[in-house]
């Protein structure tokens, strides 16, 4: 288990990539939120992929931190896609009562990357209304309207 307190954030073109490889304690999750937001503003990144496939558990604290980070990133004009959540984690999170509304999700990094490209190129173009029938991002796990 990685015991360092900071999780590396990689830059790939206009996106950032984060892979969480360690069990997150609360302060670490807060630190990660802070680091991601800083890197977004430093690099003007348009999107962030957060790979959580190694996370064995997401409780209300981590869940809320992830959802908040997505909302905060949106105010910095960057979209966040959470990638690779484990089935057991997803089931538990829903039973706990969190469904991370407003957060984009993807099955794996490839899908997440494609999704990010779609939503970031769609931003500010013709797709103002994600519910419109011929929108390319139609139903792409777009965040709920709330």
């Amino acid at each position: 288990m990685l015991e360092s307190n900071s999780i590396p954030i990689l830059k790939l073109k206009e996106f950032l990539i984060v892979s969480i490889q360690t069990d997150l304690h609360d302060r670490m999750a807060e630190q990660l939120q802070y680091d991601i937001l800083n890197r977004i503003s430093e690099t003007s990144a348009k999107g962030v992929l957060i790979d959580i496939s190694a996370l064995e558990m997401v409780d209300s604290f981590i869940g809320r931190t992830l959802a908040d980070t997505a909302k905060m990133a949106a105010t910095l004009d960057a979209d966040i896609v959470i990638v690779g959540m484990n089935p057991a984690v997803a089931i538990t999170l829903v039973e706990l009562g969190l469904s991370l509304e407003g957060v984009y999700t993807a099955l794996n990094l490839d899908e997440g990357y494609e999704l990010l490209q779609k939503i970031t190129t769609a931003d500010g173009e013709d797709i103002q209304n994600p519910d419109s029938e011929d929108s390319v991002v139609e139903d792409m796990n777009e965040p709920g309207s709330d």
């Binding site: 690779g84 469904s99 099955l107 794996n108 997440g112």
Partner: peptide, 13 residues
């Protein structure tokens, strides 16, 4: 609803 929510979390529809 719960099933649908957890499928969404995985990144599928």
């Amino acid at each position: 609803l719960k099933t649908v929510s957890s499928v969404k979390l995985l990144g599928a529809h």
